[in-house]
Amino acid sequence: MTETLIKLDNVSKVYQDKTVVSNLSLDVHAGEFLVLVGSSGSGKTTTLKMVNQLITQTEGAVIFKGKNVSEYNLRDLRLQIGYVLQQIALFPNMTVGQNISLIPEMKKQPKAATSKMVDDLLREVDMDPANYRHRMPNELSGGEQQRIGILRAFAANQDVVLMDEPFSALDPILRSQLQALVKKIHQQFGTTIIFVTHDMDEALRLGDRIAVMRHGQILQVDTPEEIVKNPANSFVSELFANSMAQDVFGVYLSRLELLDYLEVQPDANATVDLETSATVGEAIKLLAQRDTITLATKKNGLAVLTKAQLFKFISEFQDM
Results as ranks from 00 to 15, higher is better:
Lys18Met: 12
Thr58Met: 01
Val51Lys: 06
Ile55Asn: 13
Ala30Met: 10
Asn23Trp: 02
Lys13Pro: 02
Leu8Cys: 06
Ile63Pro: 04
Phe64Asn: 03
Thr46Arg: 12
Val62Ser: 06
Lys7Glu: 05
Gln16Ser: 13
Gln16Pro: 00
Ile55Gly: 00
Gly41Asp: 09
Val62Thr: 11
Val51Pro: 07
Thr56Ser: 13
Gly43Tyr: 00
Ser40Gly: 09
Phe33Asn: 02
Val21Cys: 04
Gln57Asp: 00
Gly41His: 09
Gly60Val: 10
Thr46Gly: 04
Met50Leu: 09
Leu24Asp: 05
Leu36Pro: 11
Lys13Phe: 05
Thr45Ala: 12
Thr19Glu: 11
Val20His: 05
Thr58Phe: 01
Val21His: 03
Gly38Phe: 09
Leu26Glu: 07
Ser12Pro: 12
Phe64His: 11
Thr58His: 04
Lys49Phe: 12
Thr58Trp: 01
Leu36Glu: 06
Asn10Ala: 14
Gly60Asn: 05
Thr45Pro: 02
Ala61Phe: 01
Ser42Phe: 06
Ala61Arg: 14
Asn10Tyr: 01
Lys65Asp: 14
Leu34Ala: 10
Ser40Pro: 07
Gly31Lys: 04
Lys13Ala: 02
Leu48Tyr: 04
His29Gly: 05
Glu59Asn: 14
Ile55Phe: 10
Leu26Ala: 08
Leu54Glu: 13
Val35Arg: 05
Gly38Glu: 07
Glu32Lys: 13
Ser40Cys: 09
Thr46Ala: 12
Ser40Met: 10
Lys67Thr: 14
